[in-house]
């Protein structure tokens, strides 16, 4: 299986601060990948490294088999829609398309025009006069019309109202089918990720906490509820992601590939949202361990 993105020990430092450290990933083609994490976790850094807008401090990254930003051929294969879906306020939609045609060798003008028409947008309209949702759709159109194999989107819907957000994701999913695109999109909206993504990367504090196909992740994570127990007494193949205790009861979220036979536990499935929150919480807990131990 060909990988769209492969990273090995990838890291990027700004001055003294590591924005991304020891990142190892192997994402197969044909997925819609959700990159989830709090602000400042390193999502933008990872996307910019993949787009070739940043160079690694440590380790290596290959995108679609090539080095990001290695040349015009590589740049044409990867589309990047940066945060806040930037457009030129003073230029009209038609001028954006003209610019896109001039800058991208594989530009699909028919596709761009057809999309703008379907969105009901007037090509003469200046980008500065568009609504947030329309501007996002314009940025998406520019990203799609260059006919990339991989489209990277950095928080594309964060600033949009629910309707514009849904419309944007509808367009994106439709395009993914039409153009056989692989997509990596960062988001902190778990419900959007749950709906649209079939591969998940959780990034916290510059580190990848978990990465994999959503279906496999859901099958490997379980919630165990039962009489209070020390996590150290769980089987070695059950990795505790989160634990909470009352004086009598323990609840664990564990990752394991083996079946759980211990009759003391009530085993239940976890939703993707529970899973993501457990990993976000886990790394927050390691940072603030003393405080949490007191609270228990």
């Amino acid at each position: 299986m060909s990988a769209v993105l492969r990273a090995e020990g990838l890291g990027r430092r700004y001055g003294k601060r590591w924005a991304l450290s020891d990142c190892t990933l192997d994402i197969p083609a044909g997925h819609i990948v959700g990159l989830v994490g709090p602000n400042g976790a390193g999502k933008t850094t990872l996307l910019k490294l993949a787009a070739g807008q940043l160079t690694p401090t440590t380790g290596g990254i290959t995108v679609l088999g090539g080095s990001p930003g290695a040349g015009p051929g590589q740049l044409a294969k990867v589309g990047f829609v940066a945060q806040d879906t930037p457009t030129y306020a003073g230029l009209s939609i038609a001028e954006h398309l003209k610019l896109g045609a001039r800058l991208n060798p594989g530009w699909d003008d028919a596709l761009a025009r057809e999309r703008i028409e379907r969105l009901g947008l007037d090509p003469a309209r200046k980008a500065g006069k568009l609504s947030g949702g329309q501007r996002a759709q314009l940025a998406l159109t520019l990203g799609l019309a260059k006919r990339p194999e991989l489209l990277l989107l950095d928080e594309p819907v964060a600033a949009l109202d629910p309707l514009a957000r849904r419309e944007f994701l509808q367009s994106l999913m439709e395009a993914a089918v039409d153009q056989r695109l692989s997509v990596v999109l960062s988001s902190h909206l778990v419900s959007d990720v749950e709906r649209t993504c079939d591969y998940l990367i959780v990034l916290v504090d510059s580190r990848v906490q978990v990465a994999g196909e959503v279906e496999e992740l859901l099958a490997a994570h379980h919630r165990l509820t039962g009489p209070r127990r020390d996590p150290a007494r769980l089987p070695a193949d059950q990795h505790v992601v989160s634990a909470s205790h009352t004086d009598r009861q323990s609840t664990f979220l564990v990752r394991t590939d083996a079946p759980i036979h211990d009759p003391a536990w009530t085993v239940s499935q976890v939703s993707l949202e529970d899973l993501i929150l457990a990993y976000l919480h886990k790394s927050a807990a390691t940072r603030r361990r003393p405080a949490l131990e007191v609270q228990r």
Partner: peptide
């Protein structure tokens, strides 16, 4: 598949 994802905004798979 395209019609369904375009309506529901869900993953094609």
């Amino acid at each position: 598949v395209k019609e369904v994802v375009a309506r529901l905004a869900i993953n094609p798979n």
